[in-house]
């Protein structure tokens, strides 16, 4: 299945009610860190999430090549991450979080969305998508 591509997320803020169901679902399977964040500007609720950019700054900037594209998803290999934080700074969407210190390491490591790649390759949908009660998230 190495050739298959996973689907990406697309959010329609109009349908987001700000329940944070997506955040909760994501965090339960990602070491208690959510890779999708619901923000609020005035009355408008807007989910912020990884776009898996074609020219991904995070991937280009990573000095240890910990970030690679796997089955279409910009994926971070945590064991290669040295916690420099440059990907976090480079992300135009602000959806990379430095958290979850590696054992015996002094720095936090980067956490980012992997589009629930493993789930998708097994035929399931990403957790955030499944949790959204108003279909504000679509898979494209």
């Amino acid at each position: 299945m190495e050739d298959s591509m996973v689907k990406s997320l697309r959010a329609d803020p109009h349908y987001c009610v700000g329940c944070k169901g997506c955040e909760f679902a994501c965090a339960t399977e990602h070491d208690a860190v959510t890779n999708i964040m619901v923000t609020q500007q005035g009355d408008q609720k807007i989910p912020a999430y990884c776009r898996h950019c074609e020219e991904a700054f995070c991937m280009q900037l990573c000095p240890t090549k910990a970030i690679t594209r796997e089955s279409g998803a910009v994926t971070l290999a945590e064991e290669k991450c040295i916690g420099c934080g440059i990907c976090e700074q480079g992300c135009p969407y602000g959806v990379i979080t430095m958290k979850g210190r590696k054992e015996q390491a002094k720095k936090d490591v980067a956490k980012k969305c992997d589009l629930c790649k493993d789930r998708q390759l097994e035929g399931s949908a990403p957790l955030c998508y499944e949790a959204c009660p108003t279909r504000a998230l679509a898979l494209v």
């Binding site: 987001c16 009610v17 700000g18 329940c19 944070k20 619901v38 923000t39 609020q40 609720k45």
Partner: peptide
């Protein structure tokens, strides 16, 4: 606390 949950708001 933001975003406030829309289900509760409504």
């Amino acid at each position: 606390m933001k975003p406030l949950c829309g289900f509760g708001e409504k």
